[in-house]
Design a protein around this nucleic acid. Structure first.
Length: 901
RNA sequence: GCCGCGGUGGUGAAAUGGCAGACACAGGGGACUUAAAAUCCCCAGGCCGAAAGGCCGUGCGGGUUCGAGUCCCGCCCGCGGCACCA
């Protein structure tokens, strides 16, 4: 009952507004009062230090919130409230990642416009989130589907489109800085060159096509050959698609992981996805033909053991190399490989297949003739699409050689003589590796790599190279409910299609209104249905693909900074204040969300941010300084929550039963934030009881009974006036007085302050809560409850259970006839170590490392005194008497260990 | 297969190399009550014992140390990610 009341109060007071530099802070707003900025505008330097706490904004699904959402949101809310109390200017916003498939699928089924579905869902999510009492600044709410939002998503796309990556400066630059090679003379040639360099470009390459979803997908969205969403089969299909050149940033995306505080596992996932590997490219001359085949290898030291070569079936040289005798077999194999889906390719991975082209190449170090094969275990998309096969020291090559009877030559000796050299893939010592100019025998692998690479470079046969697994980002989707590309297609004088950007003044480009949201009959995206939208009067045609859902989430954290800015995606000064000021924590200070975005959202957003950084649009190289993944909450049965298992817990139900405070507290008390843990409704009961004890620590028992009787009588009439009248019956306990606290009371309080403060800094919410429980268990026995001690405790409780804390805080001050200061902006209680000092201490006595007794000693006892006392410790006697004391170890203020023999 | 994280009571979990199991849930016993709910008090890792007390105990096996849940080496198991990436 008190919870909605306080939520209304916070909304009316705008308690949690975050102030931008230059904002005028209204008179008597508690933030202004606390920081001496009452009723005036504050410059960036006058504002207190910033703290930006961000949640991963949700996709507002029709199912509503599940208990996993509030876990992260509660953690960030607690920290936001804690930082406000510490005096930071806290930015804590919420918004909606509202483009997405479910609303569109619903539209296909029912014809209801996705915007309506989306708005309904947002309203429901808003209600649910607000009922939890989170301290968001709702004036900064954003939705990716809002035209005033996606206008800037399209604007950023144009920035990316109009940029290229300059390897000389190692950063993105406006496309005008591109200089054309001498053979680019005509306008068409220059355009083609420009378009080939843009960070957003059109590609005709094979893409991941998901027939079930009717759209293409990025590599990151395909898992085991199936779509990440829905788990539908994905096939390779050549299509004209928009790509973003994320590979240009591979090195920076990898290196800058070292500058941010993310969990090891998350960084590792990104590192694996980027997949950097160092090696060499080597050219192999095709025997009797002018062509050379370039391969990439991480083990150039094994070149002497290369006994055959393999090209991917799609390799461009295959057709030219193949001998007439082998031509039919090769063609057949290419077709076989092409029809395999990704899924089949993965599933059949164990069994190697391939055919010989009939051609040979020359091994550049041995001069030997080696056959050239094609096989689909070599991927066209990685490295050069061709390999040198060293069956002796590569598992896959070994398997292939075994199957097709190809020679195996040892060139590495394992360090342990007992190890079988065939199939030995680790580092060892080079053997059988020498020719007239080169002698690698006896060299350890690392040195052999170095020497042969130098030799290859000197001969012009190859060079050191770095390769990445990361592919460019497939950025277009055949969807209706996404941002339309601000791109037009035209034909030049020769009738060739080319693309051109819409002017910024044409933004936002709205999607057309449609009757039917399905793709068109001829496989075109749904937007192609809207004929009058599609065709411009001057003959141009609009791009009909839309952007993927990730586009909107790539920069929403920047829009929060300046959500209403109509002139730009974010104001320069504002961006600088929130992202850069504070120095040691550039960017978002804390970002909390699930681990499912490890290589999707979090990689894409870092990429966009780096482009914007290079273009001077933002002031930091990384967007998210510290990132924490909250763990999954399982159902009560220990299984993942799912509708089919029927173990889903709905926050609304918990709220009705126990209220937001108990719900929040329980979510944090379950265990460490990062851990996966099962839900247990009886656990909610436990923290609910704790809150009941807090209440009874403050409230007079008799008044409580009166209130309960009155509310039983009045049940049925639940008007606001009636509940106010009832609440008026509550009186605080007469045990609460303004008396000076005793040393024991102060000690209990300050132990709690110390622990809660420490644990909040380390996001250890579960142990902070247990510290408050310890305090309450102790304080319940007090006959005299000093108001100052109780007030400080409420401040500690406030971030966790703000409604109860506010209610009692208000009553505590009224009880003393004092004005009620803002709880949100009351300075965080300071911990005084002096109050914890004791005059004596308990000291465990160990004999040979086993606990035998505990003695009491004054804290300033000398080591000698402690030793003497320990040797006399009563219960330790039977383990000491009759033995020789060899040593006594006294750890000051910790314990004492007697070593006997 | 490779990479990362983890393994502690009946359960969720605590423990800067220094009294293992704080805090809570479930359980047992008691008080209040006509009764129930709520609340309050007590017990509670295992084994032996009437008790005092003793022995054992943090996945398994070794090691370092006066002392190891914690550090090192080798295994086993679980979870997550990647997976023909040359």
């Amino acid at each position: 009952m008190i919870e909605p009341q306080w939520q209304r109060h916070w909304a009316a007071e705008q308690t949690f507004r975050a102030w931008n530099p230059g904002d005028r802070i209204p008179e008597s707003h508690p933030f202004g009062l606390r920081h001496g900025l009452d009723g005036r505008a504050a410059s960036a330097s006058e504002l207190p230090p910033k703290f930006y706490i961000l949640d991963m904004f949700p996709y507002p699904s029709g199912a509503g919130l599940h208990v996993g959402h509030p876990e992260g949101y509660t953690a960030t809310d607690i920290l936001a409230r804690y930082r406000r109390a510490q005096g930071f200017n806290v930015l804590h916003p919420m918004g909606w990642d509202s483009f997405g498939l479910p609303a569109e699928q619903y539209a296909v089924k029912t014809g209801q416009h996705p915007r309506i579905t989306t708005e309904t869902n947002i309203a429901n999510f808003t209600r649910q989130i607000q009922s939890l009492g989170f301290s968001y600044d709702w004036t900064r709410e954003v939705a990716t589907t809002d035209p005033e939002y996606f206008r800037w998503t399209q604007w950023i796309f144009l920035k990316i489109y109009n940029s290229w990556f300059n390897p000389a400066t190692n950063k993105a630059e406006p496309i005008d800085t591109l200089s054309y090679p001498a053979d680019c003379q005509t306008e068409a040639q220059q355009r083609a060159f420009r378009d080939s360099k843009r960070l957003a470009y059109v590609s005709e390459a094979p893409v991941n096509w998901c027939p079930e979803l009717g759209t293409v997908l990025a590599n990151e969205e395909v898992i085991d050959g199936k779509s990440e969403v829905g788990g539908f089969p994905v096939i390779r299909k050549p299509m004209r698609q928009w790509m973003l050149r994320i590979t240009a940033y591979a090195e920076k995306l990898l290196a800058d992981l070292n500058t941010i505080e993310w969990s090891d596992s998350l960084k590792e996932m990104q590192r694996n996805w980027i997949g950097r590997s160092e090696g060499a490219e080597v050219d192999f001359q095709v025997d009797g033909q002018p062509e050379k085949i370039r391969v990439f290898t991480t083990r150039p030291d094994t070149l002497f053991g290369a006994t055959y070569m393999v090209l991917s079936p799609e390799h461009r040289l295959v057709a030219g190399l193949t001998t007439p005798a082998q031509s039919a077999a090769v063609k057949q194999y290419q077709e076989f490989a092409a029809t395999k889906s990704d899924l089949e390719r993965t599933e059949l991975a164990k069994d190697k297949t391939g055919v010989w082209t009939g051609a040979f190449a020359i091994n550049p170090v041995t001069g030997g003739q080696i056959p050239i094969w094609i096989a689909d275990y070599v991927l066209a998309s990685y490295g050069t699409g061709a390999i040198m096969a060293v069956p002796a020291h590569d598992e896959r090559d070994f398997e292939f050689a075994q199957k097709f009877g190809l020679p195996v030559v040892q060139v590495v000796q394992p360090p342990d003589a007992k190890t079988e050299w065939q199939g030995f893939c680790d580092e060892g010592t080079a053997v059988n590796s020498g020719n007239a100019e080169l002698a690698l025998d006896g060299l350890p692998t690392a040195e052999a790599k170095r020497q042969i690479t130098v030799w290859l470079e000197s001969k012009g046969l190859g060079q050191k190279t770095v390769n990445f697994k990361l592919r460019d980002w497939l950025f277009s989707r055949q969807r209706y409910w996404g941002e339309p590309f601000p791109i037009l297609w035209r034909k030049d004088a020769d009738g060739n299609l080319y693309h051109e950007a819409l002017p910024e003044t044409a933004l936002p480009l709205m999607p057309p209104t449609l009757e039917d949201y399905k793709p068109t009959a001829d496989g075109q995206p749904p937007l192609a249905r809207a004929q009058d939208w599609l065709h411009l009067p001057d003959g141009a045609i609009r791009e009909t693909n839309t952007m993927p859902q990730w586009a909107g989430s790539c920069w929403y954290y920047l829009r929060y900074l300046d959500a209403k800015n109509a002139q730009g995606f974010v104001g320069r000064e504002v961006e600088n204040y929130w992202m850069k000021s504070g120095g040691k924590t550039p960017g978002v200070d804390l970002y909390v969300g699930g681990t499912e975005h490890a290589v999707l959202h979090l990689l894409y957003a870092r990429f966009w941010h780096k482009v914007l950084f290079d273009l001077g649009q933002v002031s930091t190289a990384e967007p998210f300084f510290k990132l924490v993944n909250q763990g999954l909450i399982l159902g009560e049965d220990g299984q993942k929550m799912s509708k089919s298992r029927g173990n889903v817990v709905n926050p609304d139900d918990v709220l009705v039963e126990y209220g937001a405070d108990a719900f929040r507290l329980y979510e944090m008390f379950m265990g460490p934030l990062q851990d996966t843990k099962p839900w247990n409704t009886q656990g909610v009961e436990g923290v609910y009881r704790f809150l009941g004890r807090v209440w009874r620590l403050f409230v007079d028992e008799k008044a409580e009974t009166d209130y309960e009787q009155a509310s039983t009588v009045a049940s049925g009439t639940d008007s606001a006036a009636e509940s106010a009248r009832l609440l008026d019956l509550i009186r605080l306990s007469p045990l609460i007085r303004d008396d000076a606290p005793t040393p024991a009371q102060l000690k209990l309080l300050h132990e709690c302050i110390r622990k809660v403060t420490h644990d909040l800094e380390h996001l250890q919410f579960n142990t902070a809560i247990s510290a408050m429980m310890v305090f309450i268990n102790g304080a319940m026995t007090w006959e005299n409850r000093p108001s100052t001690v109780l007030g400080s405790f409420l401040q500690l409780l406030a971030p966790f259970s703000p409604h109860l804390a506010e209610e009692l805080w208000q009553r505590l001050h009224q009880h003393r006839d004092a004005a009620v200061p803002s709880l949100t902006y009351a300075p965080w209680p300071a911990f005084d170590p002096a109050l914890l000092v004791e005059t004596d201490m308990e000291l465990p006595v160990q004999v040979n490392g086993k606990l035998r007794d505990v003695i009491r000693m004054p804290v300033d006892a000398t080591a000698a005194e402690i030793e003497a006392a320990a040797l006399k410790a009563e219960k330790a006697q039977q383990f000491i008497v009759g033995k020789t004391v060899k040593k006594v170890i006294v750890v000051p203020r910790k314990m004492v260990n007697v070593v006997v023999a």
